[in-house]
């Protein structure tokens, strides 16, 4: 093993930049495909950057994008060539080490979160997400799941919505009316 390599030797999944994922002398399942994808995407972006202003001037808005996408293409190409030469890791498979069911499931959950956020509103969507996710991961009873997820959602909502007045999509919950009601209640009590 390369003495410089300080990757995560247990899981090879990149805990941080300082301990990057992957192997020093082997390629992981899907690594080549990912590198090829990056190369293709970089080529497309280079073409798109050329479309901004062509080679009009050194100061054109397309100059830096073109330079940077060109750097992407070159580095992606080197990565592809190097990765292709490496032997595959025999002990790993995409389904077990890169994209196990759990990760795919959470990908789908997050996608659902994103899609429902606007039509359904933040509170119901987030509650749904937390309940499903915590129930699935912890495997504990409904009492625990509901208490933990709704409790923490309430805390987060109070911090962001009330203290920081971040207006999350209200969706089907008339948040603003409810808040006004509480405000009136508060004012009424004070008078």
């Amino acid at each position: 093993m390369d003495p410089d390599f300080r990757g995560d030797s247990d899981h090879h999944d990149g805990t941080s930049d300082a301990t990057p994922g992957g192997y020093a002398g082997q390629r992981r399942p899907g690594e080549l495909a990912f590198a090829l994808f990056l190369l293709a995407a970089s080529l497309y972006l280079l073409w798109d950057a050329y479309g901004i202003a062509g080679f009009e001037a050194l100061s054109s808005p397309g100059a830096v994008p073109m330079a940077t996408t060109a750097a992407m293409v070159i580095s992606a190409l080197i990565v592809v060539l190097r990765t292709a030469r490496l032997p595959k890791v025999a002990t790993e498979s995409v389904a077990r080490d890169i994209l196990p069911l759990k990760v795919i499931l959470f990908g789908v959950l997050l996608l659902g979160f994103g899609l429902l956020l606007v039509p359904l509103g933040f509170l119901p969507t987030a509650a749904l997400f937390l309940v499903v996710a915590i129930k699935y991961l912890s495997g504990r009873g409904w009492g625990f799941t509901l208490a933990v997820s709704l409790g923490s959602l309430l805390v987060i909502w109070v911090i962001f919505r009330i203290v920081f007045t971040v207006l999350m999509p209200a969706g089907i919950v008339p948040e603003a009316e409810l808040l006004q009601f509480f405000r009136n209640l508060g004012n009424g009590g004070a008078e």
Binding site: F106, L110, F113, G114, L117, V118, F122, A126, F129, L130, A133, I134, L137, S138, G139, R140, V148, S149, S152, L153, I156, F160, F164, V166, L167, M168, P169
Partner: peptide, 24 residues
Amino acid sequence: PRSVLIPLIMLLSVVGAYAVNNSV
């Protein structure tokens, strides 16, 4: 426990990203 921490990190990430510019 990670089973609680992971969903909470995800939720906070969503709220946090939204809060930057109020943008879905």
